[in-house]
Nucleic acid binder design. Sequence first.
DNA 1: AAGAGAAGCAACCGCACTCGC
DNA 2: TGCGAGTGCGGTTGCTTCTCT
Length: 267
Amino acid sequence: MAPTATTMTAAAATGARKGPWTEQEDLQLVWFVRLFGERRWDFLAKVSGLNRTGKSCRLRWVNYLHPGLKRGRMTPQEEHLVLELHAKWGNRWSRIARKLPGRTDNEIKNYWRTHMRKKAQERKRSSSPSSSSSSGSNDSSINEPPSEVLSSEKHETDSIAEENSPLISGLELDDTDGIKGYTMDQIWNEIAASESVSNLSFEEYKEAGSASCSMGCPPLMATASPIWELDCSGSLWRMEEEDMRMLSPMPDLLVSNCQQSRDSWKH
DNA sequence: AAGAGAAGCAACCGCACTCGC
DNA sequence: TGCGAGTGCGGTTGCTTCTCT
């Protein structure tokens, strides 16, 4: 399919703003998303007065402003789960993210890239201290590790998942889905050797990590931005663009509240 | 204290898919 | 049935922050 207006450098084509979002933009976006719901991003971008593409708005919302998002470091349980799921599904980040409440595909992707790169480097260093060749081109092995290894590892992770994790065992695991094989055993070995937590079973992970909460109910959920806790009437999607002009502007009180919330959320 | 390099992360890009007309 | 708008996804880039020397 030919690129659409939205995909073809829409920001450039429309003169829309790019780059980091400002606090004011965030507030505006939150306000209008609460008003209209998480749909029709192009329309929302237009009526909100944000000089952004709908795509940009959606991304900002999904990755940063969405209620329930967890911030901060991955917990050991989450790290473990990411490794397991990546071993099964490969780079299906959104799919993996669905199994980690409060985490976004982008976050998991970033996590994987940085941490697995580190693991790969460490491993390379320990396994072949003399070989200085084969440079950073191994980056590809981070996302697409060689295919020859995982077969045995896959079974191991599968059994972990299926025996120890009700969360995973309930999944519909498509065998043809991204299990082409990865050098996860290398990664796993690294982790097992370097991290004491690896001595725990996945069940123990869960218990240690959240006495009060299972993976489905992350303990850090409370750190999500409180902006969304503000009450707001339901979706107003039936409204026409004409009606939009009649809407009252964002109340000053809301703005200041949101700003305070956001500040405290950041720190 | 300052500079360099590494790490972390937000955001953009382009492709593919879905759905309504 | 074809087309276009809207949306989702994975890959990539580049800026900011951190750490080391």
